[in-house]
Design a binder for these strands. Structure first.
Lengths: 334, 334
DNA sequence: CTGTTAGCGCATTCAG
DNA sequence: CTGAATGCGCTAACAG
């Protein structure tokens, strides 16, 4: 993959040392005299020597590469998350290879095969719903993997994330406590995401006796949120609050309402999910649920590297989400 | 990197063939009898055999891995672009490794070293401004690279992208043609991006005699756009149009104006840059410049693979941007 | 502290 | 159409 560059033997010849010593220096081994080390480093620089990663991988059986497969990278919290993973891996000399599955288990399976065949040593997956073939593949080959964005203490698979069910339930309870009895819930495609399904169940659980929930399934985008909000407006003028399972959809709702001359929060309350960077800057500032995407990315990356480097098993981890109360939800009790 | 799995010898033993034949089958060579091929394929499946990528790379000197270094993945057009690259590479059996540079040449250089040391065969960079060391490194090692998001026919380095200067000039001319004489321009940090600098120069060039431009440099985010728009409002009540070099900043401006009770486009016109997916769904729909990010991603990926696979040199390519006229710019001539 | 030697798993000549 | 032999560049014992 790199042509015309010095190899370990060239450095050995140049310095009059053996290739073993060069290898030691390149790998930071302790048992090399400072002088020798200097000499090697110098020669390496001159010869523009860089260890061949493939040879290294072949020899050590370690590629220092971790794969992440995500449903999408656009319009969502995944960008933050991936950025955190990449940075964390980079800090410890690991690299990230990633693939986009478009939330399709078959694409995910195909991608995993390629990434495996690329040398990925471990996999970061989104959600807990994956093709059986994929999990079988990983287990057969003993490839470590972890589910993220989900938290299920009872799962036998390692997972690091938040409790979507509880968070959504909390959101509905929060709205109910503010006096909202009729709540429209906008969410993305159920078939694509077990997180969305869990949130929907949670919302249902949070809606007590006096609370009516109306669900709107739509595309996970500003356009989708806008369209669904419009539909909610048409269907029942009665709902006093809108809960979106994604800030992106909430933004769409903002514009739907703006065009319909419906004021937030005076005429209707809006609550989001994700706490994306911009959500506090919309007007009115969006009340939403903070999802610690960055922290999650760091945690997964660190744990996987701990496992690969030191054999430390994955410790399933629940990350706390929290309601961020801002101006888009009105208390209608008073 | 993968333990306990069948190796080529196991398949050879299982089938009673030689490893050479197995290799031929795994690489789709023609000179293998159909029967033999079947036998090998079957045994491979049974033994769960997957060729070891490192061994393959070491032997062929090809890793089928391309690296992309981007300034950021959040809040921007880069997500679309990266997604396109990943998909295009995947179609031809290549993988993407990526790193985030935070628009810092030093971080970029460091990342490049790691990615090179990971086996990346070619590099996709953003913009045309990079540390000399980086370019030297690539040229010394004969590692192909291409600059993207920029178009400079005179550059001796391969670049694929759009003409930021011309696009920004066009935007200002467009606004001027609509009768706007006082235009506030909001843009991201100049020091971080040669694209931003080029756009600024272009805007200046587009502002003819009767046009006054006021520049506001701010963070490349909704928050930044909002803050700058507020500043523009305070400073000169006179500007009739706001040009943002990023849709994200334009969105911030929308909320700044909403809070200040300034109506778009009645009181002030707003124009963006990027044409992100949501920009037609904001209210009023955002007039902006479409940047063919997806097409650019595909083009770079394809060209690099053509180069790596068949030695076809990079053909510098200009992608056309276009003004998408929607409702956020008013014609003040009438 | 340094050198020697064996592979790591596969692609690829060259024979047959 | 198939097999045997060689080496890709490096790490990791094992000697010394």
């Amino acid at each position: 993959m790199v042509r015309k560059v010095g190899k370990i033997r060239d450095v050995a010849r140049e310095t009059g040392l053996s290739i073993a010593t060069i290898s030691r220096v390149m790998n930071g081994a302790q048992n090399v005299s400072p002088k020798t080390r200097e000499r090697v480093l110098l020669a390496s620089k001159q010869l523009d020597y860089l260890p061949n990663p493939a040879a290294r991988t072949l020899s050590t059986n370690k590629s220092k590469t971790i794969a992440a497969i995500i449903p999408t990278i656009e319009n969502s919290v995944y960008a933050k998350y991936i950025a955190a993973i990449e940075q964390t891996l980079a800090e410890r000399g690991y690299s990230l290879v990633m693939a986009i599955s478009n939330a399709d288990p078959d694409q995910e399976f195909a991608a995993a095969g390629k990434l495996l065949g690329m040398g990925a040593e471990a996999f970061i997956l989104s959600g807990a719903a994956h093709s059986k073939d994929l999990i079988d593949l990983f287990e057969r080959r003993e490839v470590p993997f972890v589910f993220t964005s989900v938290w299920d203490p009872d799962s036998r698979k390692p997972n690091i994330g938040y409790d979507n069910f509880a968070l959504a339930r909390g959101a509905v309870e929060f709205l109910a406590a503010k006096g909202h009895r009729d709540i429209a819930v906008i969410h993305g495609p159920l078939c694509e995401s077990d997180r969305t399904r869990a949130r929907r169940e949670g919302a249902l659980a949070g809606g007590g006796a006096g609370t009516r929930l109306e669900f709107y399934e739509t595309e996970l985008s500003v356009a989708g949120g806008k369209q669904a909000a419009r539909k909610a407006l048409d269907a029942h003028k009665v709902c006093s609050a809108l809960l979106c399972f994604s800030d992106v959809q909430a933004l769409g709702a903002y514009f739907a309402f703006s065009e319909a001359n419906v004021r937030i929060p005076d005429d209707i309350s809006v609550m989001g999910f994700d706490n994306l960077d911009w959500s506090e800057h919309v007007s009115p500032a969006l009340t939403t649920i903070n999802l610690p995407a960055r922290k999650m990315g760091r945690a997964v990356a660190d744990q996987l590297m701990d496992l690969l480097d030191d054999g430390i098993p994955i410790r399933p981890l629940q990350l706390e989400g929290a309601i961020i109360e801002r101006g888009s939800v009105r208390n209608v009790n008073s």
